[in-house]
Amino acid sequence: MVRSARQRDVRRHLLIYAGLTPYLVIAIFPIFWMLITALKQEPDLYRMDVVPFWFHLPPTLKNFALLFQSTFYMDWIINTLSISFWVSVITLLTAVPAGYALARLKLPGSENLGIGIFMTYLVPSIILFIPLARVVSVLGLQDKWWSLVVVYPTFTIPFCTWLLMGFFKTVPFEIEEAARVDGCGQFAALLRVVLPVSWPSVITAMIFSFTLSMQDFLYSLAFISVSDNKPVPLGVATELIRGDVYFWGSLMAGALLVGVPVAIVYNLFLDKFISGITGAAIK
């Protein structure tokens, strides 16, 4: 009896795994293929007579070395980190107070304002990139990574405001009231009581400023054409191709070196992202 229950459980597992295998292969194979390409020696890439899924010449880190020696890869990484840093700063400084005000101060019109801010997240970059190109050139930021610091908050602020608004609603009113009774001002209550208990959500908002900035390609493509001012995705996609010659090994190395860490961080916060955009629907 016990045995048959166990057998049934094993069979159920096998069925589920069998069902999931095609999805897993489709999802993961391209990333595996990029990784193995990044580690292969050049001649090993262009052999069709042997099974390509494994090494036939010893693996190499040459492709990674090439990135740092003969491209602006280091600059691109520094640019990407600087952009993300400043975008996070701008986003937090605006979205934290806005989210708090919308969630807790019962302002007239705050519902519509909240929805309005969130809706701007849906105004796609493809409609805004041409007028913003003009804005960027008026500000004298053309071909500078600073232009992206100005532009990325157009999508991080709406998203993070909405996200933080949801979080702040869950902070119990009592703790704030207690602080107020103890003589705290409104602003002091926000700084000293509400923020300290919501730091995980503030960190989450920061992570999203970072990962959402990393998902952009259009703005950087439209605004920046100078090699050493590019962020990583744009740099890898445009600078490692010379005419018709593709440096596949280095392309994949450069793409993965940044893509995989971003994917892992995003992965950890994915459920928050989903509940952020569908939160309105679940509630």
Binding site: P30, M34, F217, P233, V236, A237, A255, G259, N267
Partner: peptide, 13 residues
Amino acid sequence: MPFTIPIAVSALG
């Protein structure tokens, strides 16, 4: 993973 990796990166792959 396909959703979380930046699309410009995976498009190259």
